[in-house]
Design a protein around this nucleic acid. Sequence first.
DNA 1: AAATAATTTTAGTATAAGTAAAAAATTGAC
DNA 2: GTCAATTTTTTACTTATACTAAAATTATTT
Lengths: 211, 211
Amino acid sequence: MQHSSQNNSKEDADSLIGNKLREHRKELKLSMKEVAEVAGLSIGFISQVERGLTAPSLSSLSSIAKVLNTDISTFLSQPEGKSSFTRNKDRAVYTLSHKGLQYERLSASFPRSVLNSVIMHEMPGHRLESIKHEGEEFFFILEGAITVYIEEEENILEAGDSIHFDSMREHSVWNHTDNPTTILHVCTMDIFGDKQGTKEIPNTRAGRKGV
Amino acid sequence: MQHSSQNNSKEDADSLIGNKLREHRKELKLSMKEVAEVAGLSIGFISQVERGLTAPSLSSLSSIAKVLNTDISTFLSQPEGKSSFTRNKDRAVYTLSHKGLQYERLSASFPRSVLNSVIMHEMPGHRLESIKHEGEEFFFILEGAITVYIEEEENILEAGDSIHFDSMREHSVWNHTDNPTTILHVCTMDIFGDKQGTKEIPNTRAGRKGV
DNA sequence: AAATAATTTTAGTATAAGTAAAAAATTGAC
DNA sequence: GTCAATTTTTTACTTATACTAAAATTATTT
C-alpha cells in the first residue's frame, strides 16, 4: 500500500536534506565532482540527492557528510521557535534537595531547541555528583569560584572564567570556597525534561516535520 | 570471532544503531510486532535492523524512531570531545571592522560540538545588523545595557538579564546607552567557521542568508 | 565564440531494503 | 515438566530504489 495522500513529509524531508547538503558544499567551495570522488559516489547521484530526487542510504549520506567535514546529524532535523526573555530580578528560584543548590531557569523550550541555561547558586562546600551524558556543557562563573573536575582534569574557575566540554566526559563540580558561587550554565541536554513528548504523544498541533 | 578487524566501521555503525533501537524499544516495553505495525514495516525486518544485519533506509529509520517517540538523530553518532578552559584575563580580544565591537572567544571546537560562545564588548551607539540564520541564540548581559530586537519585539536588557531565541527570527542588537556593554553570547551557529572544512576565517560578518 | 568546467537528465542494473512464512526460541500457565 | 501462546530469528524470495555511466544541458571563463 503506497499511500501518497498526506505523505509529502517524506519528500519534503529529502529535499530538505538535499538543500542542506548543497549549502554545505557551496560553503566549502567544492564541486559535485570533488565530493563524488572523495565519497566514492557518482556525480549524477550527488546531483539527485541535492535536489531531493532520491534519498541516499545512511552509509552514502555518511560518506558525503564526511567529505563535508560534518556528520549525518547536521542534515537531519531543524529548529523553529520563539524566544524567552528573563529579568534579573523576577526569575523564580528553584531550590534542590540538599539545599546546597539553587536554580534560576533562563532558557525557553521551543520545538527543536537544544540550548538550556540556568543560573546555579552553589553553596560553600556543596558538591555535584559526577556524571556523564550526551551533549555539551558550558560554564561561566559570575561570582565566587569553583572547582570543576573533568575526568582527570581539575580546573579552578574564578569569576569571569569559563569552561566548555563534552558532557560524555565524566564531570563534577565542587564549591571549595567559603562563599556561594554563582554559575551561568548552558548545555545541550534536556535538563528540564520538557523537550520531547515524554510518554504520551504530544499534541498534534505543530506537526513534526518527518525526518 | 566473526570479523575482528577494526575497519568495518559501516557494519559497526549499523549494529550500533540496532542496539540503540532495541534499547529504546525495550524501555518502552514494546514488542517488535507493535513497532512493526505502527511503523508500517515487517516484524522480521525490525529484527534484522536491530541486529545490524541490514541497514534501514532513512525513511524507515524515521518511521521507527517516531514509534519510539524520538527522532533519527538519537540513533546516529555520538559525540566525543575535549574541553576548553579560558581565564578571564588571558583571553585574546578580536576587534572587528568598525571597531564598535570586540570579541573574546570562550568555547572550544571539538568534533560535533554545537555550542559557540563569546563575550562581546559593544561600544555605545554600535548596532549589529539585522540577520536571521539557523540555530538558537542566548544572551546574558554582564555589564551595561542593550536593546535586542527580535522581529517586532524590542527588548531592553540590563546587567543580569537574559534572552533566548530562535535565530531564524530576524534579530539585531543596539547599544543604546552611553557606555560599553558586555554580553555573554552563546549560540549553536558556527560563528568561528572552524567546525567544518577549516577554510579561511570567515569575513568578520557572521553568516547571513538571503538578505 | 569556442572551450572548459559544472550540473542535470536519461536509461539501465545490481544491490539491498523489505516481505511473508516457517523455524526456533522465550515466556508463562497449569 | 509439557503444552500453548507469544516473541524473535531465520530463510527464501521479490521489488523498489540507490546508484552508475554517459549523453545532454547549462553555467563559466577566456
